[in-house]
Write a protein that binds this DNA or RNA. Structure first.
Length: 542
RNA sequence: GCGCCAGUAGCUCAAUCGGAUAGAGCAACAGCCUUCUAAGCUGUAGGUUAGUGGUUCGAGUCCACUCUGGCGUACCA
């Protein structure tokens, strides 16, 4: 429909020159009485033409070569909107296209041939993934899938660090538990990892080595056992959510491959770093940032900024067209430094899209639960999936705009999960499956021969909504807003349920019934494509 | 103190570059199943879009200030 109008206006622009320099866009009005599509172009031209917008609108409409079989009415409304009403015949034919495209409907090849890297989760292997990581994992995966839907070749990547102080403490924690289990009296510091999973790992060390490793360094077998066990656990959790990473990038390789040294040398050579009190500082003030920051501590150890810069340079060198980083708001302050560093070394940071999502607040018994991996005061994703299922978990995290705080009502999610909107969507899908089973028994088939019979408002509304799917996907992908897909599907499901109530299939004339079956099938295709994109299952029965 | 993100119905959230009468779900109340799934549909009620000023044809959306909450502001990651 938009394409039709775009072409129409392009033809008119030959006559009205001023239409060539203005951005003509069409939007779906909030109120149906304002037509199917509307443009504000006349109002945008008021300043330039110094004319009343309604006058301009009239001139534009006169210039349009309208086909009354397609457009039944054009009107000027309000301050100067031009509203277009499409014919029901034109609208009903849209179904044909959806059925033909089937599982491809909604995808586009706009970015075909482009590559993207999406980095997300990136939790260090110090414990199981918590609900906090869940939001990141689900959003990141949905973003990656959206990019795939519009043509990108996408790599999902997980960046981790198994070398730092956190990991040393982890190894120590396991070793202490190990010694404890072997009967030694130990003192377990408060700031060590308190979780039960540490004991599980310790007992697996006992199983494998017995008492042999008692005098081993905590950094050795203990840390390794912990890392391995935790990573296995993390990968398993991700796979329960349908997430499969292409790459696991170990920060440590940046040291062994001398990338860290290379970056350090590059900064020095360009005069972008200096030494002060035995530490190396990056001249971020010269790059437009607030203050200089330390990149190598006086101990000789780099701060996180340095490997982060080296890591991003590595990604730049892999030549992606788009690099997406997704992390929680606690990291919001770090990326401007990292980007500034990369830019100073000549890399095109416009390719990088840094996405920041706000935190998840867990509410239990009306109180906020403070989460900390260290204190083992957390709810794991696994526990949550066990309680409510992967579909609910995925949908819950993807349904909301990432830059608002997410209140996770634990009791509500557990007890009243039936009220989760995800069931509303799945129910619509299952209902259609049921219709198709039933009509088949009655020897009715889907037919596109008499689609023009679909003139009921509920039918027309449904078709128009289905038609919008492709552009909704494109919009969601280009704006990195996966929650738009969920919002769209909820609206679609509501319109379908209304159609279901208003327009019966069994009992209608055969030609009408078969046209309605075609419409139901089209609705099922769109629901399935949307839910599949979000990796939510599409049940045939509920 | 400074920076970033937010504040919309009792609760959770929408509102497509600044567009027309701010919309859904849940909760509340009143209805609809002898016919394709009632996990559904219809109706009622619920709002000074945190506040004050500004920009303009037009502001929930942009600007300034104030209030409230979250996250930062390390030679932690």
């Amino acid at each position: 429909m938009k394409n039709y109008l775009t072409n129409l206006f392009a033809a008119s622009a030959e006559k009205l020159i001023y239409l060539k320099d203005v951005d003509i866009s069409f939007s779906v009005p909030k109120s149906e009485s304002h037509g199917d599509l509307s443009t504000n172009v006349a109002m945008l031209l008021t300043k330039q033409l110094k004319k009343n917008p309604r006058q301009i609108a009239e001139e534009i409409i006169k210039s349009l070569e309208l086909d009354t079989n397609v457009i039944t009415n054009v009107e000027i409304a309000g301050p100067g909107f031009i509203n277009f009403h499409f014919s029901s015949e034109y609208v009903s034919q849209i179904i044909d296209n959806i059925l033909t495209e089937n599982e491809k409907f909604g995808k586009s090849d706009k970015y075909k041939g482009k590559t993207a890297n999406v980095e997300f989760v990136s939790a260090n292997p110090t414990g199981p993934l918590t609900i906090g990581h869940g939001r990141n994992a689900v959003l990141g995966d949905a973003l990656a899938t959206l990019l795939e839907y519009v043509g990108y070749d996408v790599e999902r990547e997980y960046y981790f660090n198994n070398a730092g102080r956190q990991m040393r403490v982890l190894g120590d924690s396991v070793k202490l538990r190990y010694l404890e289990m072997l009967g030694e009296t130990i003192e377990f510091p408060d700031d060590y990892y308190q979780g039960e999973y540490i004991k599980d790992i310790a007992s697996s060390v006992i199983e494998e080595y017995g008492e042999k490793v008692k005098s081993e360094d905590a950094e050795g077998v203990f840390k390794q056992a912990a890392e391995q066990a935790i990573f296995t656990d993390i990968k398993n959790t991700l796979s329960r959510l349908g997430i499969i990473m292409k790459n696991f990038f170990n920060e440590h390789t940046l040291y062994t491959d001398k990338k860290i040294d290379g970056v350090l040398a590059a900064f020095k050579e360009k005069g972008l770093s200096y030494e002060n009190e035995d530490a190396v500082w990056l001249k971020l003030t010269d790059m437009g940032n607030e203050q200089d920051k330390v990149i190598v501590k006086s101990t000789g150890e780099p701060t996180y900024r340095l490997p982060d810069i080296a890591y991003h340079i590595n990604k730049f060198e892999r030549n992606y067209d788009l690099i997406v980083d997704l992390f929680g708001s606690d990291h919001a302050a770090t990326y401007p430094d990292v980007m500034a560093g990369c830019r100073a070394l000549g890399y095109d940071t416009d390719k990088v899209k840094v996405m920041i999502h706000q935190f998840v607040t867990i509410m239990e018994n009306g109180e906020i639960v403070k989460m900390s991996t260290r204190k083992a005061n957390f709810v794991t994703i696994d526990e949550l999936i066990d309680e409510v299922g992967a579909d609910v978990v995925r949908y819950f995290f993807v349904m909301r705009n990432m830059n608002t705080h997410l209140n996770f009502e634990l009791d509500l999610a557990k007890k009243q999960s039936d009220e989760n909107p995800v069931f509303y969507l799945q129910y619509a899908h299952a209902r259609i499956a049921s219709i198709l089973r039933m009509t088949e028994q009655e020897n009715l088939k889907s037919s596109t021969e008499f689609l023009n019979l679909l003139i009921h408002p509920s039918e027309q509304r449904l078709i128009k909504k289905l038609h919008q799917f492709a552009e909704e996907i494109l919009y969601a992908a280009e704006n990195f807003e996966p929650n738009k897909v969920a919002n769209y599907l909820e609206e679609l499901a509501a319109i379908f349920h209304k159609f279901y109530t208003d327009c019966r299939i069994l009992g209608s004339d055969k030609t009408l019934a078969e046209a309605r079956i075609a419409l139901a099938k089209a609705a099922q295709i769109v629901l399935r494509n949307g839910l599949t994109l979000l990796k939510v299952s599409t049940p045939e029965r509920m």
